[in-house]
Design a protein around this nucleic acid. Structure first.
Lengths: 332, 332
DNA sequence: CAAAGATCATGAATCGATTCAAGCTAGGCT
DNA sequence: AGCCTAGCTTGAATCGATTCATGATCTTTG
């Protein structure tokens, strides 16, 4: 049927055990024998059957990664970090897209479980926590991405949203602004609220009252929401002189709408975005924004999951917060 | 060790064959037995070992997808199309990133081959064609993405670049323009040259001479290249009144630089981009652009690879070109 | 020179799910 | 009663790589 280790052995005139040793512990095989086996492998075009190997050794050489949106640059960068870190220790990555649907998430999880992946990196969208606990019970490492584990029963890695809000508003304060607006997205996740708390913290530290920041909550983090924010801003009196946005899409929407209305940026209104997407640098006025260490997030999470899945004795679950960074361009 | 089909069988008081039947051909098992087995599966938290299954049946339930850049929205959308189409027929997708490096591509390929994936979808970056032919010889389906197979020995799916250039320039001609510029990217792939040919075809059909289109070749398809194009354009006399760009990044760079120089868009200069990235709609003047059917590309490619990998008798290799679409916004 | 190591090679047993020829049972038919 | 069929169930054989106790050969050493 398929060219197996057995035929390689026959062709090289050795036993299957020797062929296996050439593949896995080459140093235990005499040089001449090894050469003969390698030649046979080449002649026959033999490729090791990973299923058989996995069946025997009991676990796979892969990690599973489930993200809620493969098209979101945030997660593609995280995935990149995971891939690099995994490749560094000889592991592959099975990338699944839950598309923010609990049904697809569930199916992806089943798939990964059937494949016996060593560890799971996931941004859960509709998952009962006892389900994840069950997986951990079977020795599969589990790390939460961009979420914080509710108790200390699991590792998690997340960017520190509060710090992000803090550095953005601190920057604006440093430029001399006194009246601020915050364009928030939906309040369901912790991201927008955390940034809000950080913004207030920065004001407090500078001795400014909380009322100096107007909170404009929008139903979504989109360009058109940004345009709406601009419209609202134009009607305010006194008008804020600094705008901090929940993400770059909103910031760019607001920026372009303000420019069209004749507002000068950053002179009349300064703007800070969030995420540092490609868009930010391409805006009419290149956008000052907060960059999240996305690739690093994937990297750190991968190290944690490998530590947890391995038999590393002293593993303690922990939450790792990562620090975002201000990217200063022209808009503030 | 691991809860296997054997323990499920013991617990339900049936044979392993029956458990396997419940899993794979439920209709062959009496309803009461089936219920008993399912209960046992549930009690024990049994999850089928995919490696063992694969080893036995000889082939996996997955397709392999190798793209040169996981962060490029083009490929994330293609991947989305592949995932959806594959999920529709019960297949999983192993997504690999070659990062445009032949070494990584090679390693990804080995991984997929070891996993015995049923088919391979790939945008090759440094692959000898006989290598792919070898895979096909083993019964693995192979389909080229966004590339054209040089001979008729393989299936391929690609967006028709020539048509894209044609519809973009035809649109500009329809608006009454007579003097054009084409901002091309590097000429290594076929994409930018194809679009150029399409542009010339449109001119020819409208009875305009080829000299009415100035070709500005740039070293990369980036925002800053777009700014350079704008600078060049401003020095030209007579100045073209219509600009067609190799992609949206360039178009946006040019657009914003022109606006800043006081040029009115689309009145003084009309602009058409290419790709319809998120950016296009977010530009200061929302960008008219050419959208490639990216998800559909993945979908069609998946159907082809499944057809080729299955024992469908009448499979003929073919090249499928897909038609791009003009998205009209404000810039032209 | 004999004994003790050191170095390699061997091949049967094993992992867990699937398959399929063979066996069993209940019910229908003559 | 005897025979047949349809419907279920059984369990040994199988897929291919790994493992490890065992054996074979060669080297070193007292």
């Amino acid at each position: 049927m398929e060219t197996s280790i057995r035929e390689v052995a026959r062709r090289a005139g050795v036993s299957v055990g020797t062929v296996s040793n050439v593949l896995n512990r080459p140093s235990r095989v005499a040089a001449t024998t090894r050469a003969r086996v390698l030649a046979a492998i080449d002649d026959l075009g033999f490729v090791r059957n990973e299923s058989a190997r996995q069946l025997r050794v009991g676990r796979s050489q892969t990690l599973g990664l489930i993200v809620p949106d493969t098209r979101n640059p945030f997660f593609t960068d995280v995935a990149r970090g995971v891939e690099d870190a995994a490749a560094g220790v000889g592991l592959g990555v099975l990338l699944c897209n839950s598309a923010a649907s609990p049904g697809r998430e569930r199916r992806a999880l089943d798939l990964l479980e059937q494949q016996r992946v060593r560890g799971l990196l996931i941004t859960p969208v509709g998952l009962r926590h006892d389900h994840l606990a069950r997986l951990q019970g079977r020795g599969m490492g589990v790390v939460l991405l961009d979420r914080r584990a509710p108790h200390h029963d699991r590792c998690s890695v997340r960017v520190d949203h509060e710090m992000g809000g803090d550095i953005a508003v601190s920057h604006l304060i440093g430029l001399g602004h006194k009246r601020f607006a915050y364009a928030s997205g939906p309040l369901d996740g912790d991201a927008c609220q955390g940034r809000h708390r950080g913004a207030l913290r920065a004001l407090d530290r500078a001795g400014l009252p909380p009322e100096s920041l107007i909170n404009l909550v929008q139903p979504e983090l989109s360009v058109s929401s940004g345009r709406n924010v601009a419209a609202t801003l134009l009607r305010l009196d006194p008008r804020p002189t600094a705008l901090f946005c929940g993400n770059d899409l909103m910031a760019v929407g607001a920026l372009h709408a303000l420019l069209r209305a004749g507002v000068r940026v950053p002179d009349d209104i300064a703007i800070v975005g969030y995420d540092d997407v490609e868009l930010a640098d391409a805006a009419a006025i290149p956008l000052t924004t907060v960059r999240q260490p996305r690739q690093q997030l994937g990297h750190v999470a991968t190290e944690l999951v490998i530590e947890e899945a391995g038999e590393a004795p002293g593993h303690r679950h922990r939450h790792v917060p990562l620090a975002p960074e201000l990217i200063t361009r022209d808009s503030a």
